[in-house]
Simulated assay, not measured.
Amino acid sequence: MQTAGGATLSEDTQPEAADGPGPDETAPKPQAAAAKPNRRRPGLTLAALLIAAFAVGLDQWTKFLAEANLDPREPVRILGGLVHLSLTWNSGAAFSLGTGYTWIFTIVASAVVVFLIVLSRKIVYPAWAVAIGLVLGGAAGNLVDRYFREPGFAHGHVVDFISVFKPYGEAFPIFNIADSALCCGVALIVLLELTGHGFSPESRRNDDHEKAEAPA
């Protein structure tokens, strides 16, 4: 069917067909901008190192006080017996585990400290600065004992003095401030990973992608 001018109705109703592709076909399709990975943040690296330094300083200070004021033969009962201050020297790992392998723990702890210092340069989230700082401080605090306490370099015994419920670690392994910082840092890392707050932006994007694809 034609109009008076000879044009078909289809030409009137679809001008794009006569004039060429419509704007929807020629205009570039909008694309979501690729998310740029977060750059490392030197301020968070500094925060992690400061947290680690504080943990080491507090650990060494409390160990100094323990050795200066506690008698290894007479535990001090505090907090109604919840905590006993029992001075001991540990040649093993955290919580008096693996005694007799001091030099091995020194090597392992040294490697862990170096690794964490390198890893701290890549921190982009504040919670990870806290977690890495605590683990680094805990590992470094006991490593100081390994290197500089008796009976000798790299064979030093770690000072432990906190015993819960009963003295001398009878109810729970005896520990120190460095052990506490280390355990708190590890617990925070596990919590962050389990809740989808991974160390890197890529891990978080992958987790978000998996959640988006999961059936409702």
Score class of each variant (00 low, 15 high):
Ala109Trp: 00
Val164Trp: 05
Leu85Ile: 03
Asp12Ser: 10
Gly92Cys: 07
Ala32Asn: 04
Ser91Tyr: 00
Cys183Glu: 11
Val114Lys: 01
Gln31Met: 10
Gly43Lys: 09
Val190Pro: 03
Ile107Arg: 01
Lys122Leu: 06
Thr3Trp: 00
Glu11His: 11
Asn206Lys: 12
Gly133Trp: 03
Ala35Lys: 04
Phe115Leu: 03
Ala7Glu: 15
Ala139Lys: 00
Glu193Pro: 01
Tyr147Val: 14
His197Val: 13
Phe161Lys: 01
Leu70Trp: 10
His157Asp: 14
Gly156Glu: 05
Arg77Ser: 15
Phe172Trp: 15
Ala66Arg: 03
Ala52Trp: 02
Ile107Ser: 09
Ile132Lys: 09
Lys122Trp: 11
Ala18Phe: 04
Ala93Thr: 04
Val130Glu: 08
Val158Ala: 05
Val158His: 01
Asp160Ala: 02
Leu97Ala: 07
Thr88Ile: 13
Trp61Arg: 14
Ser200Asn: 01
Leu188Thr: 09
Asp160His: 00
Ala127Tyr: 04
Pro28Phe: 02
Val76Gly: 13
Asn69Gln: 12
His84Leu: 06
Ala48Tyr: 01
Leu87Pro: 06
Ile78Thr: 12
Thr3Glu: 08
Gly80Thr: 07
Phe54Cys: 15
Leu134Lys: 02
Thr3Tyr: 01
Gln31Leu: 07
Leu9His: 02
Glu170Asp: 12
Leu49Gly: 13
Thr8Trp: 07
Asn176Arg: 03
Ser163His: 04
Ala178Val: 05
Arg41Phe: 14
Thr62Val: 04
Gly152Ser: 08
Ala154Asn: 07
Leu194Gly: 03
Glu11Asp: 14
Gln2Trp: 07
Thr88Cys: 10
Val112Tyr: 00
Ala66Phe: 01
Asp12Pro: 00
Leu182Arg: 00
Val164Tyr: 03
Ser110Ile: 08
Ala93Pro: 05
Arg77Pro: 05
Asn142Arg: 01
Ile117Lys: 00
Thr45Cys: 14
Arg39Ser: 02
Lys29Asp: 08
His197Asn: 15
Asp59Ile: 08
Asp208Phe: 03
Ala66Glu: 09
Glu193Ile: 10
Thr8His: 08
Leu65Cys: 11
Pro72Glu: 13
Asp145Met: 06
Pro15Ser: 11
Thr62Ser: 13
Leu136Met: 07
Leu192Cys: 11
Met1Gln: 06
Gly138Glu: 05
Pro167Asp: 08
Asp59Arg: 04
Ala212Leu: 13
Thr13Pro: 03
Asp12Leu: 14
Glu210Ala: 14
Gly100Val: 03
Thr102Ala: 11
Ser180Leu: 04
Asn38Ala: 15
Thr88Gln: 11
Gly156Leu: 09
Leu119Gly: 07
Thr195Trp: 00
Gly185Lys: 06
Trp128Gln: 14
Lys36Met: 06
Leu194Gln: 01
Pro30Lys: 06
Ala35Val: 09
Gly92Leu: 10
Arg41Ala: 15
His209Cys: 05
Val76Ser: 08
Leu191Thr: 09
Arg205Lys: 13
